[in-house]
Design a protein around this nucleic acid. Structure first.
Lengths: 213, 213, 213, 213
DNA sequence: GCTTAAGCGAGACGGTACGTCCGGTCTTACC
DNA sequence: GGTAAGACCGGACGTACCGTCTCGCTTAAGC
């Protein structure tokens, strides 16, 4: 979880065409399982290498840090889950049944479930925390993992605007944050329990506003 | 940033009446300055002890972890700032001018400024990140630092409800999250710039709701 | 067996009054036993630390290299052997029975035995080899281990000169090398077997000369 | 400088007729220059391969160890020097002017010069040291490099015996060691300076004997 | 002249050890 | 008994090389 430091003296990049796919996969699995078992902090690069049956240098050759390994492993996990779900390996969308509130509740409830899924919780907490402290890693985390999801909200909200379900003056990129950030807040800071009811309330409050109509 | 591990065998507590105030203060200052200079990760307990002119044991005697030191140092920093501001050392409140939107914008803008203040940024990022990964520390962080601030929103929103500026069905503890979480989200994840304009927009969106009236 | 490199940045010397005698002894024993068991090259600092039940840093704190550890361990071994032999902990001398040839043969035969003693062979070969390649270590080796022994020959040969058994023009410091070097040569380079008979022959040849009288 | 370990499983020998002469020479040069520049210990096989513009495998294919590479390189260096000197590429002999002492002094002085020649010093020290610790390498070193030279002394001393300049009872193989070993001793152990005067003294002492006549 | 098999440069790989850094405990001397 | 100092055991760090193992490529020999 190192704050970005002076960049490496560059050296020369290794030849990625000769990379061992076998090792790459083994490292992903070792990293994820270790983080799940002993937590991020007590997961070490040596430990990952040992469990993966890989030389340490093979990790250092391809990743700059423990966090970077875990980020890639986590992305890969997501891709595999996606492939398993929809064979087209493709893109997700927020459903559009015509009922905006219902659609958002569906999605946010699913998000709650995902955030609380023990399989994902440890690594995603660790990555988020690492990204908070290390801007470079954070940027990668946001770009690869977060923004694609957020974009789906933008799309759905824009459709809602066209359907007249959202006021025209509203910027969807901001609006989505009223929906998503409260969940993230509870999840990250553990202030109060993160439940489906909470997700529903957030949708209702955000759509209807706090002020009387 | 250790995930909570098996608790210490307790041993016997040291006698806090004989504690050296001098050392305590020096440790706070050393911790804060080091985190500011080299970042949280590269700040070490040895480094803090050395800069504070203190034996390592003096730190281990009174704090369980690096994060705990920093949390206390940060709380102390807050208290000192508070004392400097209002001599009564007392409590803050969100202003109540009768214009809820304006009052919230004032406070959220101030929050934006504080989050971006370089003096506070490094340690509070570090603490937040540590708390995300270590539940025990996170709980302390929330209880001592976050909840007191959030309570102020509850108070203000309840007053607004009585004044008819917020719908009666609304739970202020949830409502406040629509206001605060989006700022926290941008600050922590650095998705988009955190500005006064953004704070204003969040207040307007949250009060007015996304749906057309 | 590092050739002397640029000297350390000095740092500050540790406080030798607080040194752990226990660790020191354990390190000596571990070093000697490992060299005996697996050879000098395959003896590692990590291995010594592990067998001695000591942190690596405790070795690096007090010795600059593996060879230095072994040299001290070997010196200590010699001292202990000396103490065991003569309780006065004192000095040795080459016997002076009046018969120079016999006295020298006695000593050189003993030297042969010592060189071939399996307990000493591995470490002393290793140290000699290390000293050949690393001048600094070599100097220490010669000063602490070799020269004291050689001085005994100087003394005995001078006595012989006074007794008329050695020509007056002879420089004892050079003469001793005619006696000692051939044994060392056979031992180090393993050209031909190192035996008592060889020791006797060397003494006879050196005293009597190669040329006819 | 590995102590001889369990021998290789033999594998199959490579086809030496297809060997690249170019690479062989480049490896010799790289090895010798690196040993001269950074010392034997810090010379690595990877370094030799890199400087020679050669794959590591090309070294491992033809030599069992770093020491073996250097030994061959050094032998080759000697051969080249020999060719440069006497075009017949042939055999040396110790001169026989009839004056044994003078002839020996000539040769031993030349030996002193050679031992102190910076071009040869680093590699021959390294090889000797390696041979001291690794018996297999030592044997090769002695057989290929040392014994041929020593044989010349045997020849010359035998001639001297026939000429009546050396006593008949003397074994030349032992006698030569009285002459050569003292020089080797000073050179290897750096006890005292290795000079022409010392070489002369050794010859005089050895021929005349230490005892009065 | 075309195949084929070996040597070759290159360098990724699983490992081992390096020498350093720091965590957390323990000891010593001082106050 | 708290403190400054710092030695201690332990263990991870990131690096350097080891010796093995593919990869294409060149280059001869054998067909």
């Amino acid at each position: 979880m190192a704050e970005t430091r002076n960049p490496k003296p560059a050296a020369k990049a290794p030849d990625s065409t000769r990379r061992s796919e076998r090792s790459r996969r083994a490292i992903y699995e070792a990293a994820l399982s270790l983080v799940g078992e002993v937590g991020y902090t007590r997961t070490t690069i040596e430990g990952i290498a040992a469990r993966a049956g890989v030389g340490k240098q093979t990790i250092y050759r391809w990743w700059p840090s423990k966090a970077a390994v875990l980020l890639e492993a986590f992305l890969d996990l997501g891709e595999q889950a996606a492939e398993a779900a929809g064979a087209e390996g493709g893109e997700y969308e927020i459903p559009d049944t015509g009922d905006l509130a219902a659609d958002l509740k569906t999605v946010l409830r699913a998000t709650v479930d995902e955030l609380l899924d023990p399989k994902y919780e440890a690594p995603s907490r660790a990555l988020t925390a690492a990204g908070i402290v290390d801007p470079a890693l954070g940027a990668e985390f946001v770009e690869k993992l977060l923004e694609p999801s957020l974009q789906l909200y933008v799309n759905r909200l824009r459709a809602a605007q066209e359907a007249g379900d959202v006021r025209t003056g509203i910027d969807p990129r901001i609006a989505l944050e009223l929906l998503v950030a409260p969940l993230a807040h509870r999840w990250l800071l553990r202030t109060l329990p993160l439940t489906h009811e909470y997700a529903d309330a957030v949708v209702d409050y955000a759509l209807g506003g706090l002020a009387p109509r």
